[in-house]
Amino acid sequence: MSLADLPPDAPGPGPDSVPALPAAADRGATVIPTKVIARIAARAAREATRPDQATLASPDATARVHEQTARISLTLDLPYPIDLTAATCQVRDYVTARVGQLTGMTITEVTVTVRHLVLTTPAHRRVS
Rank of each mutant, 00 (worst) to 15 (best):
H116C: 00
D9G: 00
G28S: 11
V112A: 00
D52N: 13
L3G: 07
P79V: 15
R98W: 02
T30F: 06
P7R: 00
R64T: 12
V65M: 12
R64G: 03
M105A: 01
A4S: 02
V95K: 07
R64Q: 11
E109W: 01
V112P: 01
A97I: 12
Q53N: 12
M1C: 06
M1D: 06
T85F: 14
G100M: 04
P11V: 14
R64A: 06
P59K: 07
T88V: 03
V95P: 05
T121A: 05
A42N: 03
P13R: 11
R39D: 15
V95C: 09
A54D: 13
R43Y: 10
E47H: 11
T121F: 11
L6N: 07
Y94I: 04
A41F: 04
R71A: 14
L3C: 03
S17D: 11
D5T: 13
G100Q: 07
S73W: 13
T108R: 04
Q101G: 08
V36P: 04
Q53I: 09
V114N: 00
V95R: 05
A38P: 08
P59I: 08
V110A: 00
D83H: 13
G12E: 03
V112R: 00
A10S: 07
V110F: 01
R98F: 03
P51N: 03
D77N: 14
S58T: 12
T103P: 01
A57W: 08
A54M: 10
V31S: 10
D9K: 01
T75Y: 02
P51Q: 02
A86W: 13
M105Q: 02
P15G: 00
L117R: 00
M105L: 06
Q90M: 09
P81S: 12
A48G: 02
S73V: 13
A25S: 08
T85A: 15
P22C: 04
D83I: 10
A48H: 08
T75Q: 07
T121N: 10
T34E: 13
T30P: 02
A123R: 02
T88C: 03
Q68T: 14
A48Q: 03
P59R: 10
V99D: 01
T106Q: 04
T49E: 11
R27N: 08
I32R: 14
D93F: 07
L117P: 00
A25I: 05
V114W: 05
M105H: 00
Y94F: 15
A70I: 15
L117H: 00
L74G: 06
C89Q: 13
P11R: 12
L3W: 14
P122A: 03
D26P: 02
T49H: 08
A70Y: 15
P15I: 02
A48L: 06
D52G: 09
S73N: 15
A61C: 12
L102R: 08
A20C: 01
H116T: 01
P19R: 10
I37W: 07
L74E: 12
H124P: 04
R125E: 11
P59S: 06
G12A: 11
T108H: 02
A24F: 15
T121L: 06
P79T: 14
T62S: 15
Y80A: 14
E109G: 00
S2C: 08
